[in-house]
Amino acid sequence: MRKTSHAGEAVARVLIWAAAVFVMALLAFIITYLLVKGLPMIDWAFLTEIPRDMGREGGISSAIVGTLMITAIAVAIATPFGIGTAFYLSEYRKAGVATRLIRFCAESLAGIPSIVYGLFGFIFFVIYLNMGWSALSGGLTLAFMILPTIIRTSEEAIRAVPGIYRDVSFSLGATKWQTIYKAVLPSALPGIANGLILSVGRCIAETAAVIYTAGSVLRMPSSIFSPTRSMAVHFYILASERISMDNAYGTAALLIILIFIINVVANAIVNGLAKKGA
C-alpha cells in the first residue's frame, strides 16, 4: 500500500503548529521582557528591605510578606468549604434542584469581576464587620473569589473517580465517610490540588479585590489584622503613578518567579500523591 497525501492534512498540520508556536512565542516574549527588565533589580536587599520613599528606594519585603499572608488566609479558608461543597454536590446529594441551585450560584460567583468582590469586601469586612483594611479582610475577600474555582475543579476530580472504587469500598464494609476518605479522596486528590494551584495563582496576581480590602500600606504587617500591600498592588501603584518603573519591573519579575516556583513545587507534590496509588 502506498502512502497517500492529502492537502487537508498538511494544511491542518501547519495551522495547528502555527497556533502553538504563536502562543508559545507570545508567552516567551512577555516572560523574557519582564525578566530582562526586572531581574537586574532583584538582589538580596530588594527581597529583604522595606520599601522607602513610596517604593522608589528599598526593597519589597513587606509586599512579599503581605502577599503570602493574604494568599495563605484565602486558601486556608476557601479550601475546606470548597472541597466540602464539592463532596456534598457529588456524593451526598442526588442531582436535583438543590445541586443545580448551588452549581448556578458557584458559576455566577465565578463570573463576577474581581473589583466587585473588592467592593463587597470593603463594605462587608472592612466597614460592616469593622476589620479595617487588613490582611484578614483581603484574605477573606479572595476566599470568596476563589471558592467557585475550587468547587468546580474539586467536583470534576471527584466525579472522575471510577464508581467501582465506591462499590469496592462499600463491599468491604466501609461506611460512606470511610469510603470518601479512604477510597475516593486519594484518587481525587491530584485533581483537587490542581484547582488549589490555580487558586493560589489567582490570589497572588489579584489587585482589584485586594486594594480595597487589604489596603496599600507599605509597612511590614505585624499580624493578620494589619493593613498591607500585596506585590500585585505594589506593582500597580508603582507603575500607574510612575513612581519607579524599575522597581515595578522587579516586582513583576519576582511575581512571575514566585508563581513559577509554586507551580513546580505543587506539581511535584501532586505527582508524588498520584504515584502512591497508581
Partner: peptide
Amino acid sequence: TELRRRVGMVFDVPTPLPLSVYDNVAY
C-alpha cells in the same frame, strides 16, 4: 457493615483501589 464483612464480594473486573498491595488487603 458487619453483613458485608461476613459476605464479601469480588467483582467482574479486577478492582484494586489506588493504594499499595498491602494497603488494599489491609483495607
